Simulated assay, not measured.
Amino acid sequence: MNRQGILTVVSGFSGAGKGTLMKALLEKYDYGLSISATTRTPRTGEEDGREYFFLTREHFESMIEQGELIEWAEYVGNYYGTPKKYVEDQLAAGKDVILEIEVQGALHVRELFPDALLLFITPPSAEELKNRLVNRGTESMDKIEERLSRAFEEADCMQQYDYIVVNDELDACVEQLNEIIINEHSRTLRNNSYIEKMSNELKAFKKGDL
């Protein structure tokens, strides 16, 4: 049975540990991480097609006009977006693809890919979220308060996700994510072609046809 890959969209609060979780998942299991396109200049050590597809502003805007991006946004003067063809090619080849983006982008992906699997990553509690942001030691309290305020707004969207995954213990969370994606392949709605094939084959065994 030919297996179509599943597009898994991962979102979560800033400070929930999404980046660490995705890195651990991809190191242990064979998933494809969707590569974003950007107009920003490559940083030292970055390669085109590995960290990002580095594009000119004109090329990026052409992709917007042609509907070639799943989602896109402009941040601090640069465009960032997800090329549709790259994701579709990976899925058609049977590769499960993971796309890590913010909430609004994720809900837009659901519009374009109704079968996408949406996972929301959260810490065990709001207090733990605050502690993780503070312990990173990279931002001022004003910035941390801004992120917590944003998290409050994002919480309203949690019910639109298929699964809520509590990132408490890293290894256990990695296993949970992997199990969710594996089990998703067995859902009835993802096996319509197999169901039709089996039904047609069974017609030969109907009473009187043997």
Score class of each variant (00 low, 15 high):
Ile101Leu: 02
Ile195Cys: 00
Gly105Glu: 00
Arg43Thr: 00
Gly137Tyr: 03
Gly81Val: 07
Tyr163Gln: 12
Val134Glu: 07
Ala151Arg: 03
Val109Thr: 04
Arg43Val: 06
Asp115Trp: 01
Leu107Ile: 14
Glu196Gln: 11
Glu184Arg: 10
Ala155Trp: 04
Lys18Ser: 08
Val165Ile: 14
Arg190Met: 04
Asp48Phe: 08
Met1Phe: 09
Arg190Ile: 08
Pro123Glu: 05
Val165Thr: 03
Ala204Asp: 13
Gly67Trp: 11
Ile164Thr: 10
Leu133Gln: 03
Val103Thr: 13
Arg110Pro: 01
Ala24Met: 05
Ile121Phe: 10
Met63Asn: 05
Ala16Arg: 02
Phe53Gln: 09
Ile35His: 03
Ile182Trp: 07
His185Val: 15
Ser14Arg: 12
Gly81Trp: 00
Arg147Glu: 10
Phe54Gly: 04
Ala37Val: 12
Ile121Ala: 10
Gly12Thr: 07
Val174His: 02
Glu179Met: 14
Thr39Lys: 05
Leu177Thr: 05
Leu91Lys: 05
Ala106Tyr: 00
Thr82Asn: 00
Glu169Gly: 01
Leu7Pro: 04
Lys85Leu: 14
Tyr194Ile: 13
Glu46Thr: 01
Pro124His: 02
Glu74Asn: 08
Pro124Glu: 09
Leu117Asn: 01
Thr138Ala: 06
Phe54Ile: 06
Ser125Thr: 13
Arg132Leu: 12
Arg40Ser: 10
Gln66Pro: 03
Ala73Asn: 09
Gly12Ser: 02
Leu170Asn: 07
Ala155His: 04
Pro123Ala: 08
Glu128Ser: 03
Gly45Gln: 11
Asn178Phe: 14
Glu127Asp: 14
His108Lys: 12
Glu68His: 10
Phe120Leu: 02
Ser140Trp: 10
Gly45His: 02
Thr188Pro: 03
Ile101Ala: 00
Glu58Met: 08
Asn183Tyr: 02
Leu21Gly: 05
Asp96His: 09
Ser11Asn: 04
Thr38Phe: 05
Ala93Gly: 07
Tyr80His: 13
Pro124Cys: 06
Lys130Gln: 11
Val165Ser: 01
Ala155Lys: 10
Leu119Arg: 04
Ile195Phe: 03
Asp96Asn: 15
Leu91Met: 13
Phe54Met: 07
Glu169Ser: 06
Met141Gln: 10
Glu71Ile: 11
Gly45Thr: 08
Glu88Met: 11
Leu170His: 07
Thr44Ala: 13
Gln176Trp: 01
Val76Trp: 03
Gly137Val: 11
Ser149Arg: 11
Gly81Ala: 03
Leu202Gly: 14
Ala151Glu: 14
Leu25Arg: 08
Arg110Ile: 01
Phe13Asn: 10
Phe53Trp: 12
Arg3Thr: 15
Lys85Asn: 09
Gly208Gln: 13
Asn200Pro: 01
Lys95Ser: 06
Glu111Gly: 00
Ala24Gly: 06
Val174Asp: 02
Glu68Leu: 13
Thr138Cys: 02
Gly5Leu: 04
Gly45Val: 10
Tyr80Ile: 14
Arg3Glu: 15
Pro123Val: 09
Ala126Cys: 05
Ala106Trp: 00
Val87Phe: 05
Leu202Val: 09
Arg150Phe: 09
Phe120Thr: 01
Ile180Arg: 04
Ala93Tyr: 06
Thr122Phe: 07
Leu210Asn: 15
Glu65Asp: 14
Asn78Asp: 15
Glu100Val: 14
Leu148Ala: 02
Arg187Ala: 12
Gly94Pro: 06
Val174Ile: 15
Leu148Glu: 06
Pro124Ile: 02
